[in-house]
Nucleic acid binder design. Structure first.
Length: 486
RNA sequence: UCCUCCUUAGCUCAGUUGGUUAGAGCAUCUGACUGUUAAUCAGAGGGUCGUCUGUUCAAGUCAGACAGGGGGAGCCA
């Protein structure tokens, strides 16, 4: 057996470290730096912290030492000793060092210094080896685990909704077509259009933009379900908050109303933060200090004031602000910001809230996450439940968006329209073909119940917890317009 | 898709009102030193200044087009 190593995280962890002193260990990993021709900072990705391997002078031949370069992989055998130097409590005094894989120092792109995120983005296959991305992706892993833990503990069923779908009724965005038809010379029908009956599925198909509709079907049998999978949008969005391929979590719960839905979403987000704060302290501490350093470069008025860990703690300890859309509009209209005409987009009842409006509410007015409910029906999707007793022309739906500082919309959800007649009327109004959605309407025909759900953009959550400002830096290999490397 | 900024050594960046041989730190190589923490010291190599076109006696510097990237907006998660 080759692998009898101890993971660096375990080797360095408080109680284990002391008790290991005097014992022989094998560690394997990649060289971060080699200082003074004696001290190897070795990392294996289990933690942000490096273990220091000491190659005492004169005990190793030059040929081996020359090959200990940044990026090289080594296997070191040695004895755990209390460190003579500062900066670490224990270190490994090497008795044997084997080079597993050389790394030409002249060609290896990563250096023991700060690189720009833009540069590292172009070296996406190597950036995992940096402190920043190491921490980001360990936290991403923890968040994914915490998602399943949260729902599993609450008796939710993890429903795998399809990635290829034929439904295009939700209108959540532009879709990627899935086809095996040839690009040129595809069969045409009598009308001169491409004949999709000749296609693999016998109809036009796309990559999913949301698992919600299928999720609702599951909730109508299992009561509580969630999905967690990749989602695709072919929108030409070039921003720090959008990806063409991203991961989304969509719980759907029978018998929940909008308030239950909000409570679930708030508990969920807090659970995710809590889990990471308990399990990724080193990573958060590193990202915290990284952000603090970055903030120092900013002019005072642009600084956020709260450190990353402070921010997460604050969110954990305080309730999310809950306001209606109508209240939000009033707050905006009464703000000095509005009176001084500082908004680019006008504010009046009926508009969709613009980024600048959301940012004002979250970052200036409330300074905490805000849940906005009761949006105008005209700007929301067909499946959202119509609120009763609305003034004519001011119909609202039981929608809710959670807005987070620095990210904007992190959750979008609603109580669904469970009344068949109302749902059909709404679909007709919005020109959604009832026949194609017959399977969906069946849930309202046979034992319909009030139910609600929401979607949380996983990458946006990772952004929020890590403080990374560009969404391309929280997914391993980002897919964005004109960019599908690796 | 729109607005805006950027592109100079492997990396991060400087480069004056257009002017002769384009600079620094880190990295690399050579040597010295040796309990270092992005080690230090001395020296060396390394650039068709994003691409193309134009203005000019002369372009890294001015203008235009294109490409790539950043930030913002829209669409949304």
């Amino acid at each position: 057996m080759f692998n009898q190593r101890v993971k660096i995280k375990q080797l360095l962890s408080g109680t284990d470290a002391k008790s290991a002193v005097g014992s022989e260990v094998v560690v394997m990993g990649w060289v971060r730096t080699f200082r003074n021709n004696q001290f190897i900072a070795l990392n294996d990705g289990s933690t942000n912290n490096n273990v220091q391997i000491v190659a005492s002078l004169g005990e190793f031949n030059e040929a081996i030492l020359k090959r200990i370069t940044t990026g090289a992989s080594i296997k070191a055998t040695g004895v755990v000793v209390e460190s003579l130097g500062k900066g670490q409590t224990v270190e490994v005094k090497a008795t044997k060092i084997e080079i597993l894989g050389d790394s030409d120092a002249e060609k290896y792109p990563l250096q023991p210094k700060k690189h720009s995120l833009e540069f590292l983005r172009e070296k996406a296959h190597l950036r995992f080896r940096t402190n920043t991305f190491g921490s980001v992706f360990r936290i991403r892993h923890s968040l994914a685990f915490a998602v399943h833990q949260f729902f599993n503990d609450r008796g939710f069923l993890y429903l795998h909704t399809p990635i290829i779908t034929s439904s295009d009724a939700e209108g959540a965005g532009e879709m990627f077509r899935v086809t095996t038809l040839p690009l040129e010379g595809a069969a045409k029908n009598e009308a001169g259009e491409i004949d999709f009956t000749q296609d693999f599925f016998g109809k036009s198909t796309n990559l999913t933009v949301s698992g919600q509709l299928e999720g609702e079907l599951g909730a109508m049998a299992f009561s509580d379900i969630y999905t967690f999978g990749p989602t695709f949008r072919a929108e030409n969005s070039n921003t720090t908050r959008h990806l063409a391929e991203f991961w989304m979590i969509e719980p759907e719960v029978a018998f929940n109303d909008l308030e239950d839905n909000m409570n679930l979403a708030e508990d969920f987000i807090k659970h995710l933060i809590d889990y990471v704060m308990k399990h990724n302290q080193d990573d958060l501490a590193f990202l915290d200090s990284r952000l603090a350093e970055e903030e120092k470069q900013l002019p005072t008025e642009k600084r956020s004031g709260l450190g990353l860990v402070e921010k997460l703690k604050f969110v954990l300890e305080n309730g999310f602000e809950r306001i209606t859309y109508t209240e939000a509009i009033d707050i905006l209209l009464n703000s000095n910001h509005y009176k001084k005409k500082k908004f680019t987009y006008d504010v009046k009842w009926g508009i969709d809230l613009q980024s600048e409006h959301e940012r004002y509410l979250v970052e200036q007015h409330f300074k905490k996450p805000v849940i906005v409910t009761g949006y105008p029906a005209a700007i929301k999707a067909f499946y959202m439940r119509m609120n009763d007793g609305c003034e004519a022309g001011k119909e609202t739906v039981a929608a809710m968006d959670i807005l987070a500082p620095g990210i904007g919309e992190i959750v979008g959800g609603s109580q669904r329209e469970e009344r068949l007649d109302k749902l059909e009327a709404r679909m007709n109004e919005m020109h959604i073909p009832l026949e194609e959605m017959s399977y969906y309407l069946d849930t309202r025909r046979f034992g319909s119940v009030p139910h609600a759900g929401f979607g949380l953009g996983f990458e946006r959550m990772v952004q929020f917890v890590t403080g990374m400002t560009n969404i391309r830096d929280v997914i391993a290999f980002a897919r964005t317009p004109k960019n599908c490397e690796y």
